[in-house]
């Protein structure tokens, strides 16, 4: 752990870099996950309303897919 803390005089900049990277990637990840779950919920709602896509076969495959 001592190695970890010996970042020299510019420790602030190094830590800031890692924090910024983490925040940006984390935000992107959260956005992708939230987007996905929102889309799945809305798709499920549409299907519950009885809206079907062109092929029912593909739809059932989707249902299995989005459930996983």
């Amino acid at each position: 752990m001592t190695d970890f803390l010996e970042l020299g005089p510019h420790a602030g900049f190094i830590i800031a870099c890692y924090v910024v990277t983490l925040v940006v990637i984390g935000a992107l990840f959260v956005w992708i996950l939230a987007d996905g779950s929102r889309l799945r919920a809305r798709l499920a709602a549409m299907e519950a309303q009885g809206v079907t896509r062109r092929s029912a076969r593909a739809r059932s495959a989707d249902a299995r897919e989005s459930g996983s």
Partner: peptide
């Protein structure tokens, strides 16, 4: 992951239009 989302988004769009 983003591609899967995008496919679902297009699916949703087609269903909404339908």
């Amino acid at each position: 992951m983003a591609m899967r989302n995008e496919i679902l988004r297009r699916r949703l769009r087609t269903m909404q239009l339908q």
